[in-house]
Amino acid sequence: MNYVFDVDGTLTHARALMPPEFKSWFVNWMKDKSVYLVTGSDRPKTIEQVGKDIVDKCNMSFQCCGNDVWRYGISIAQTNFTVPDDMMSWLEYEIKNSTYPDRFGNHIEKRVGLINFCVPGRNLPDEERDEYFNWDKAMGERLDISKRFNERFQGFEAAIGGQTSLDIFMKGRNKSQVYNTIGTPMVFFGDRCETTGNDFPLVQMLKPTDTFYHVTGPEETFTLLKEKYSG
């Protein structure tokens, strides 16, 4: 069995550290299992959140939605992605014209094979993160931006990731690209499994021999693992 995990919202809360009790249990649990990470974050952020003792002991770590691939701490593949000028201008316009009142900087972050786009900015403090998340749920800003982006830029796609951002990559260079590398049977845990979420492309690839759990946070992931997969 291949156990596959998103990170933000699944093993951790958004941009937070893995809960200590969960991490201690997980490190022991994974010792005799095939474990993979598939996250939109880059490698340094993932190590900061869950620790090198987990990241480098996974069979593979798929960073940046599978565009930066690591095996036991060694880089084995990367996807090149150059942001077109017209796309950058379009995104900057969206930041400027959003009706959300606050900006905190670091709105367009270039990663391996993708860019992470955040209207309030990735530097926003935790309390503002929750505020934007709730505002966005009511206003649907990220959903609207992603739909208009996908209509305008045909060779690319945008998907909702985490609490505040969008992941933008070349078409098909989303989390679905890891499926054939990992293979079946697979158990996948993710928090953005809805059709507009960045976990959905992987969920779409699953076969009848696979299972997925659309979780609400690390507490639910921890509970499911203990109840169903701790034998």
Rank of each mutant, 00 (worst) to 15 (best):
G140Q: 03
F117H: 06
V7S: 04
G197S: 08
V27C: 08
N106M: 12
L114C: 12
F81L: 06
E194H: 15
P218M: 03
N59L: 06
V187Q: 00
W90M: 05
G66Q: 05
N80A: 13
L224S: 09
V112S: 03
Y36M: 08
E151H: 07
Y179G: 09
L166T: 02
N134V: 11
R148N: 15
D68P: 08
F104Y: 15
P19V: 07
Q204H: 08
T211Q: 15
R142Y: 00
K228Q: 13
M30Q: 14
N123C: 09
I47G: 08
N198D: 12
G231K: 10
S89R: 13
D199H: 03
K207E: 13
N116H: 14
Q154W: 06
E94Y: 09
V203G: 02
V112D: 00
K171E: 05
Q78F: 07
E219S: 14
G231F: 09
G140F: 05
P125V: 11
R173M: 12
K226I: 04
P201Q: 09
T196D: 15
M87T: 07
L37D: 01
Q49V: 00
W29N: 03
Q78C: 10
A138D: 14
I54P: 09
Y93A: 14
N67V: 02
K33L: 01
V50W: 00
P218I: 01
Q49C: 06
E131K: 15
